[in-house]
Simulated assay, not measured.
Amino acid sequence: MSFPITRLRRLRGSQGIRSLVRETTLTVNDLIYPLFVTAGTNVKEEIPSMPGVYHLSLDLLEAEIKEVRQLGIPAILLFGVPESKDEVGSSAYQEDGIVQQAARLIKKTAPELLVVADTCLCQFTSHGHCGMVHYDAECGTAEILNDESLELLVKAAVSQAKAGADIIAPSNMMDGYVAAIRSGLDEAGFTNTPIMAYSVKYASAFYGPFRDAAHSTPQFGDRKTYQMDPANGREALREAEADVTEGADMLMVKPALAYMDVIRSLKENFDLPLVAYNVSAEYSMVKAAARNGWVDEKAVVLETMIGFKRAGADIIITYFAKDIAAWLQEN
């Protein structure tokens, strides 16, 4: 039937009716909040390019964790900013590394809070790349080594699991990383520790503020030889399929805002839980516009989150998590 018998506006006439027929919902249980933990004491430094996001030392971490739990946020994504770096990122897999110390402290403070550990080397290497580097002095070139890097990533993942991490989230984009880490975790007795695979991670301009936060800007070149070309969509399916085959428990698309088509594509082709990473520049752009009075921050953020969910995301990693949790409580 057509108009006037069919009147689509009938189901929009009041807040009650709109809520009753709403197709997509957002809850606090969908959220993961990223945290940046750093060396030192009494450190709470706002990241200049990410208003409201801080570097926190371990002695101030407990108060932050308590706030996260009070807001009902179920999980945090843990990043570490170490005191020192070297060519092989050794502090990424040391027992007393900053991530390992933070994981133990968080599980002691809030055992029920899920700790998702970012598993990469870029924050810990002196060159800022996600793997080991081979330098060819004669040719003046440098290559990011894939297979040799896997060994170090496995060591990092196992050390994080030993420290109490509930979920391992490898963000390195080395080929075969899921299989290597799955094997390493199983051999170490962590067969029940899930892997949240950064399956589709683009070489994106939207990471700029994060590199400020994680102190992980590459000292030479870029990451285009191992992160994906933003122009490619079908390749995302190949990346995700490889991770599923290798034993991933969750799949991620990063960034999220410019890649909702990719989120939808993965949702239609795979049945694993799907994670959208609302990355640093996506956060900072909204914050900057809101501070200038150009947008309604709450309205824009909540609409964006609903967009991620509608596209197919089951879980959203976002720096807005605390804001969203508070807004949901208000509602």
Rank of each mutant, 00 (worst) to 15 (best):
D222T: 05
Q219H: 09
G89A: 04
G221I: 11
Q100P: 08
F190N: 00
R264A: 15
P170W: 10
L20W: 08
Y177H: 10
E282G: 01
P230W: 08
I168W: 01
V21N: 05
D271W: 03
A290H: 07
A311V: 10
F210T: 02
G176N: 04
P4C: 14
D261E: 13
Q123C: 03
M173C: 14
P34R: 08
R10F: 05
L77Q: 12
T6D: 13
A325D: 05
S90A: 12
E23G: 01
I98W: 09
L8W: 14
P74Y: 11
H134V: 01
I5Y: 13
A165T: 06
G189C: 01
G176K: 12
S204K: 08
R223L: 07
R310S: 07
A213W: 01
I17D: 06
L153W: 06
A163I: 06
T191I: 12
L150G: 09
D296E: 15
V295S: 06
F79N: 07
A248H: 03
H55S: 03
E138D: 14
E241Y: 04
V116W: 09
R22E: 13
T225G: 00
E151K: 11
V21S: 11
A197S: 15
E83W: 02
D96E: 14
E83S: 14
G80M: 05
R211N: 04
M132H: 09
I106E: 07
A169D: 05
E151G: 01
H134G: 00
V275F: 02
F124W: 07
L114T: 15
P74Q: 08
K44I: 13
Y283I: 06
N146E: 04
A117R: 00
Q329W: 01
S14T: 15
K107D: 08
A281F: 06
M305P: 03
A63E: 14
L113D: 08
F210I: 11
S265M: 15
L145S: 02
S49H: 08
M196R: 03
P209Q: 00
V133C: 03
Y259G: 00
L35A: 00
V244A: 09
Y135D: 03
A163M: 09
G80I: 08
A242C: 07
T191D: 10
I73S: 05
L251A: 03
R69M: 14
M174E: 00
S126Q: 12
S91K: 10
S19A: 15
G13M: 13
S199V: 08
G176P: 02
R69A: 13
V279C: 14
L56C: 04
R12I: 02
S126L: 13
R291L: 08
V81Y: 02
A161W: 07
G97L: 03
A299N: 11
D229N: 15
V279K: 07
A289I: 01
K309E: 02
